[in-house]
Structures are given as structure tokens and as C-alpha cells.
Amino acid sequence: MDTKISEIFNAIVDGDASAAKQTVQSALEAGIDAEIILNEGLVASMKEVGRLFEEGEYFVPEMLISARAMQAGMNILRPVLIEQDIKPSGKVVIGTVRGDLHDIGKNLVSMMLEGAGFQIVDLGTDVAPEKFLEAVTEHKPDILGMSALLTTTMSNIKTTIQYFEEKGVRKDVKIIIGGAPITQSYADEIGADGFAPDASQAAALAKRLMGKA
């Protein structure tokens, strides 16, 4: 790995936002291709963060500060990516379903997806089926992600999927779901395209659904 790329990688894995910003800037100034910085620096480092999380070496605070560092680097890189017309891995609309105000799981998934090169449209919490549909119609994402923390609100994931079916748009978007009470069997039962038990695996799932894993 190029020294400058490995500096970006280490800054993000260490959660050092200031260093991430500086090293991305420095790599750009050194003439390293923006797509290489993205894939070998930012995306690779967040994949490593995901691995550390899955192995129990990183926990939520470490993931959050790494994601923050990744976002600091991405803020420097994004204008260059746009200028060079480099496309994201895919687009994801994401939100916590109606009646549920919890957002930490959803936010972690958003960060890991962004770290995996996806463009994110975050609808926040307490999102009604109508609002999900509106966002999908407007942004035309590849994937819709829905989250619920409570057993009493998880049924609103099913309600939203049914609403999409009623409106004839279910086949237009892949739907992935997650949250503390959600299981693979529930995802299968309600007709979701995928389920991930944590943020790291959600990013891998999204890549698989995009055929990029």
C-alpha cells in the first residue's frame, strides 16, 4: 500500500478525524487518483473497522469515531469525486420506521455504508411508509434500509413493505432491514431482500445486493 494511502487508512482506523482530513488532502496534492484514495484509503479502512467490530475489538464508540474520521476525509474527497464523475457504489435511502425514535443503529449502518462507498439519503427516525415511498420515488435508490429497535414498532417494517407492494413499487428497490428485535426469519417472513445483525454486516450485505461483494 502506498505510504500516503496507508496514512489515510491508519488515521481512519484510529479515529483521528484531523489526520484523516490532512492525509486525504496530502494524497490529493501528491496526485494520487481520487478513486484510489476512496477505495484503498476510505473504503478499505472502514472495512477494517467493520472487521475489528465483528471480532469484538472495536465497539460502538470506536466505530463512531472512525466513521467520523472517514466523513472528515470524505468531505475533502467528495468534490473531487463529483468533479471526476466517479460514481458511488450505490444509493441507499435509510430510516427508522414509524413510531420509533431510536437512531443509533441506523446511524451506524449509514456510516458503514458511506464507508463502503454508498451515497446515503438519511430520512431520520419515525418515518412513515408514505415518506419512505416519497424518498424512493425522488432519489431512486438501489437499496432501502429500514430499522426498528422495538418489538412494537418492528411491525411497521412489514407495513412499509406492504405499502410498497400496494403501490406497485416493491420491485423497484431492494429492501434491507435491521434492529435489535429483527431476525433473518422475520426478514424472510415479511419479504425483505436482506437482513444484517449489525452495521458492519449491513455494509457487506448492501455490496452483495449490488453484486459488488
Binding site: G15, V60, P61, L64, I65, R68, D103, I104, N107
Partner: peptide, 9 residues
């Protein structure tokens, strides 16, 4: 809230 997790650092 969630900010506590980054406050640790």
C-alpha cells in the same frame, strides 16, 4: 444520547 460515545474520546 449517542454523543456520549464520542465524548469518551
Amino acid at each position: 444520547g449517542e454523543a456520549l460515545f464520542t465524548d469518551f474520546t
